[in-house]
């Protein structure tokens, strides 16, 4: 399985050292800079605080990461995903 890390110098949470693997689930704790275009975009797609996302697929060569949220799939670049502060979600 491919693994990757998201470089995230702003985040105070641990998402910078999260090792993503397909199937792993995370809870969204916060969005950075919620007034920005990209954040508003993610919000209207349902990636809000408290939502749970599942890593569905990781594109090769440092490409986008596909996440599953609210029953549909969304592909985001790694720096776009880094807007979210994530914590591992365990049931």
């Amino acid at each position: 399985m491919h693994k990757c890390t998201i470089p995230n110098i702003f985040s105070t949470m641990k998402s910078s050292i999260l090792q993503f693997t397909p199937g792993a689930k995370y809870r969204i704790e916060a969005l950075r800079d919620s007034y920005s275009y990209l954040s508003q975009r993610l919000l209207s797609l349902g990636l809000i605080k408290g939502a749970v996302i599942e890593i569905a697929n990781i594109a090769p060569f440092g490409g986008p990461i596909e996440v599953k949220c609210r029953g549909y799939n969304l592909s985001l670049r790694r720096d776009e995903l880094a807007i979210l502060t994530l914590t591992p979600f365990v049931i």
Binding site: Y37, L38, R41, L42, L45, A56, P64, E66, Y72, N73, L74, S75, L76, R77, E80
Partner: peptide
């Protein structure tokens, strides 16, 4: 200029 990808993956 910013560049966004952010794409929905249809089934």
């Amino acid at each position: 200029s910013p560049s966004h990808f952010l794409m929905e993956m249809p089934p």
